[in-house]
Amino acid sequence: MKIAIASGKGGTGKTTLSTNLASYLAETNKVVLTDLDVEEPNSGLFLKSELIYSEDKYKMIPQWKESDCTLCGICQEACNYHAVIQIMDSIMVFPELCHSCYACSELCPTNALPMIPKKMGELKHYKTEQFHFVEARLSIGEEQAVPLIKQTLKYIDSNYGNDYLKIYDSPPGTSCPVIEATKEADFVILITEPTPFGLNDVILAIETMQELHKDFGIVINRYGIGNNDIVNYCHNNNIPILAKIPNDKEIAILYSKGELLYNSIPAVKAELEKIAQYISALSANYLPTQIPKNN
């Protein structure tokens, strides 16, 4: 079963929930946690883990071969992203604009634009005491998160079968990176805080999940601050509230140090248990997920 944790607004507790939930569920399940917030991956900061594998990730971009080029202009015309431009008698490629569609390269009559790999980021695979953790990290200056998210999801799919509970820490927002990170998920947990900002952004996230026809539920973080609007909104729209993590300065302090919460704060453990039970009830539909760990 695949569970994505997303939020709309940044800083509402995605990474806190992902790391604590993965750790808690790993006590009784086989779990792999993946950090898909490739622009700012943070999950690893909260986990004690050992690196077991890493690889560079590449995207393909065209490279101009001057000797074979007839300056026919087809490449420039074919590129919808203006990533290939003819200036005087040379062809310029702008890698950060390139989407790797291959049109310029394959439509070139003289094969003067072969595709070559360009590093866009790194994938690292770690092992904690209880579960596996994969992180993808976009190189600074690379603008497109989607290709790296795609490759990371492929890595997970080819390394982990259905007997694993797969948890994805997703990027914030509602645009293309979030869609990529959540579109294959069986269930999405949207985490928010009970403030006007939190409500505004979670409604955007809810609309996104409805558009994707996703099954989803809400976790309210820092419960107790702000107002009751998010609770009312969920009740009025029949959206399940899976858990309410209390507002507590102690939680903020533990988080600031990079520590997991549930072993020190019983109220957090109780809320994680509620989420675990909800997932367990759902996963009956996604057998054979709940295979005991030692089998």
């Binding site: 990474t15 622009e39 700012e40 943070n42 900061l45 909260f46 600074i140 200056g141 988080y255 600031s256 140090k257 990079g258």
Partner: peptide
């Protein structure tokens, strides 16, 4: 930013971009 492990981590990355 905020004085948390992730605040500092993300600040460093975004500053790399600012420096570019």
């Amino acid at each position: 930013t905020e004085p948390t492990v992730s605040g500092l981590h993300d600040l460093k990355r975004v500053y790399e971009l600012v420096a570019k």
